[in-house]
């Protein structure tokens, strides 16, 4: 499920980086007073090692588990999402498993959607028994994470297949693999429930507002990705003006007219204009911060 570099359009990758950073930043903020570092560092190492376990499947093949829902159930959604983000970052920076530009999307799918949905599915079905709840959490977490990955690459024009191909392929395949994920999750949770039930006590979870915001972000993230794609390739107001036969009559063109660099092809120009704009904003922000500190 790790998306590599080159599969996602940069606007979509950028939006997913922002969404992931918001959730991870909030998770770190919520854990600021807790001495959680060794716990999710070592649990991350354990998830990483457990991902190497190949479970035999009848027919001579095997599958390994991802562990997002399990991380959420054992650590709670905040520490669980951080532990998964740590695993994904190591996989990206040490094994080149998952791209650098796609890290935001991979974190969003496997450390946010998989962990948070897995955790809440577990809580919702816990009354039917821990095994059943953890099976559903494992299955639904990985399947929905895969569907979101399908939406992200399906919306990207870099990837030649549309949503009608990517979503069913990712969803169906992971829906089947999810049975293994759910079974392993159920096995682990049942064992821990019988040996150390205190570990499965209710963890710090988002308050209603934070939960509503994160849930809304998950629900609308495909729309964000779609909007990023739109903004990246066409400007709605310009389209409207073109339909109405209106033309621009600028008083001053600016140094980088229409986010381009004169004499350079538009796509490259937009990239340079974006970098220049970001540097200017950062510089202004730095100067203002320095000024605010001295006054």
């Amino acid at each position: 499920m790790h998306i590599p570099d080159g599969y996602l359009d940069l606007p979509i990758a950028g939006i997913l980086y922002i969404l992931s950073l918001v959730v991870l930043g909030y998770s770190i903020y919520r854990l600021r007073d807790e001495k959680f570092t060794p716990l999710f560092g070592i649990v991350a190492a354990a998830i990483f090692a457990a991902q190497m376990l190949n479970w035999p499947i009848p027919g001579g093949t095997s599958a390994h588990f991802v562990g997002g829902a399990l991380a959420g159930i054992l650590l709670g959604p905040y520490a669980g999402s951080l532990a998964m983000a740590v695993v994904l970052t190591i996989q990206c920076l040490v094994f080149a498993d998952g791209g650098i530009t796609a890290l935001g999307a991979n974190v969003w799918n496997m450390a946010v959607i998989n962990v948070f949905l897995g955790y809440y599915a577990y809580r919702a079905f816990e009354r039917f028994g821990k095994s059943a709840a953890s099976f559903i959490a494992g299955w639904i977490g990985i399947t929905l994470a895969a569907i979101f990955a399908g939406i992200e690459i399906g919306l990207s024009t870099s990837f030649g297949y549309g949503l009608s191909v990517t979503v069913p392929v990712m969803g169906l395949w992971h829906g089947i693999l999810g049975i293994v994920e759910g079974t392993i999750t159920a096995g682990v949770v049942s064992y821990i429930a019988s040996s150390r039930p205190d570990i499965l006590e209710e963890k710090a979870a988002p308050g209603k507002t934070a939960l509503a915001v994160i849930a809304a972000m998950i629900v609308v993230s495909p729309l964000f990705a779609y909007a990023a794609e739109l903004v990246g390739y066409s400007e709605p107001l310009e389209n409207a003006a073109e339909m109405l036969g209106l033309s621009e009559n600028p008083i001053y063109e600016g140094l980088l007219p229409d986010y381009t660099v004169p004499g350079i092809d538009p796509y490259t120009g937009t990239l340079i204009a974006g970098i220049v704009g970001t540097v200017i904003v950062l510089a202004l922000g730095y100067v203002m911060a320095r000024y605010a500190r001295t006054t």
């Binding site: 190492a45 096995g187 049942s190």
Partner: peptide, 24 residues
């Protein structure tokens, strides 16, 4: 096989929790 595998991984996570405590 799957049940015993699940138990093995469960034990593994318990040990990782305990190790995290010692590392802290």
């Amino acid at each position: 096989l799957w049940r015993k595998g699940g138990e093995a991984v469960g034990l593994f996570f318990l040990r990782s929790f305990e190790r995290a405590e010692r590392v802290q």
